[in-house]
């Protein structure tokens, strides 16, 4: 190989490797407990809506303030504040993936991903539910 050739290839490889290193800013999946230990650090929290606690959202007062409680599979509980509009099917969700930071007494959420039964048209339970809803009593 010619020298220039090698230099340019190495240069490009270096840029790519550099970029990769620079862009590997992955975060982690955490439980409420482990997230509380990482105050202020960006994490993904996998939890469920705590249905025993109230959801606070009053779009007339402030459409950009939602607060609710989340509980994870280990029983860890936290207040969540999400400064955006309420995802419409929050109450129906089975699982919530929240991205954000734990701050003092609450989880400051930047993004919410909901896992809702309706998205799983293929799941058997959902189909059974649907059959019983769409058929009349007999």
């Amino acid at each position: 190989m010619k020298k220039t050739h090698i230099i340019i290839l190495v240069g490009i490889a270096a840029i790519i490797v550099g970029l990769l290193a620079y862009s590997v800013d992955f975060s982690t999946y955490d439980t409420v407990h482990s997230a509380k230990k990482k105050q202020g650090k960006f994490v993904h929290l996998i939890a469920k809506l705590d249905k025993t606690q109230p959801i606070e959202y009053d779009p007339i007062k402030n459409p950009n303030y939602l607060s609710f409680y989340a509980v994870d599979s280990l029983g860890g509980q936290t207040k969540v504040i999400y400064r955006n509009s309420k995802p419409t099917d929050l109450e129906k969700s089975e699982r919530i993936v929240m991205k954000g930071k734990m701050e003092a007494d609450h989880f400051e959420c930047k993004d919410i991903l909901l896992k809702c039964p309706s998205k799983y048209k293929d799941s058997k339970e959902q189909l059974q539910k649907s059959v019983s809803e769409t058929t009349t009593s007999f």
Binding site: L19, S23, D25, F26, S27, T28, F42
Partner: peptide, 15 residues
């Protein structure tokens, strides 16, 4: 347990 970064779109956009 690697999770996506804080700003997923930006992590792609910068590249």
């Amino acid at each position: 347990k690697i999770a996506p970064p804080e700003d997923v779109e930006f992590s792609y956009n910068k590249v």
